[in-house]
Design a protein around this nucleic acid. Structure first.
Lengths: 188, 188
DNA sequence: TGCCTGAATGTTAGTCGCTCACATTATTCG
DNA sequence: CGAATAATGTGAGCGACTAACATTCAGGCA
């Protein structure tokens, strides 16, 4: 029926690790869950876990959105100040995006939002995106200092919106992000 | 001559730990420096290090500014939107503050800015300040969601300004922060 | 001055995240 | 089927951090 090929062994153990990992994080907390426990629950060795994820936190953190964001920022008119260009670019990027498979994303974000050490990790992992945004703004004429502040501030708003969305049971991701950007774009 | 009492033993080992720690971080990098190495250089045991700092990163991260910030935000007129209230509050708070003993602060911020894992730690450690700002904004009538976004975004700008300041050899801390807030307050 | 109490430090052992070198078992495809 | 390659296991070890317990040191009081 479905056109999907049967999952390879690699895909199956990956899915098992994610499934058991998120499950145990939700039940007993991130810090209280050991990598060895997750591996054991997935029928695999601790070593194997680290072959799939470079660190424990990566079971919760992806981040595939860099190219879309930077492209959208590049499309903004250069007359606006960098801060507004970044905010509006992100806004229009998300508007154009299909709503992603939210169930698992919501679980991950909720775990991250509720775990102090992961909140830090989220910020660090946003570093790549931030760097991309900075480069785009600089390419469009902003100074590096200004670009760094603009990028950091806008992305912080985005992350805060993400966290709020995950904690509230309802609403779409796109709406939450729009509302977050509304808070910041007080100039029109 | 000086009115200072002679440093106690505790003060002396604390100073030794900070001094050798920062020194080694600058010379060989944060990740490449071991807590045991710092302790040894300070003539003390690894265990003693952790009696002074709850974690390695705390040798670099303080954060004594919460009360001043929240007070200044409370003083802002409530007609403005929360985002601007937070930004302007922080601005006026720093304007009123005496320029702190910058040499050691600059060293710490520079180390933090140049170490990915510490950038994340800074963000996590800002959580307290963020929470305080959120509470102040909510007390002044903002919704929690709006307050969280505003606080996160403004503090991110502040941190970005801090990092820029530390990396550039000259300029005062207050000026750097003002410039960072200028980027964000595009509405007037 | 000498003791005495509490602060400061040391010791040992252990957990957890994470890495490396090397051996072993599965998969898949010619 | 057999060989190449992918996936996993083993064991040893490092570094951050914690806890229980023992020890030494500092400074005030008789």
């Amino acid at each position: 029926m479905s056109t999907e090929t049967p999952p390879s062994k690699r895909e199956r153990t990956l899915a098992a690790l994610v499934e058991h990992g998120l499950d145990m994080f939700e039940r007993q907390g991130y810090e209280q869950t050991t990598v060895a426990q997750i591996a054991r629950a997935a029928g695999v060795t601790e070593m194997t876990f680290f072959r799939y994820f470079p660190a424990k936190e990566h079971l919760v953190l992806d981040d595939p959105y860099d190219p879309i964001l930077t492209a959208a920022i590049a499309a903004e008119p250069r007359e606006s100040p960098p801060f507004l260009r970044a905010a509006r670019g992100i806004r229009s990027a998300w508007r154009a995006l299909p709503e992603p498979e939210t169930p698992i994303i919501r679980r991950k974000v909720r775990i991250a939002a509720g775990t102090p050490s992961l909140r830090g990790a989220v910020w660090r992992s946003t570093g790549n995106t931030e760097q991309a945004v900075v480069e785009q703004l600089v390419a469009d004429g902003a100074t590096p200092e200004v670009a760094r502040v603009a990028a950091a501030s806008v992305l912080a708003a985005l992350v805060a919106g993400l966290f709020s969305w995950a904690e509230s049971e309802r609403g779409t991701l796109a709406d939450a992000i729009e509302r977050a950007l509304d808070v910041i774009e007080v100039a029109s």
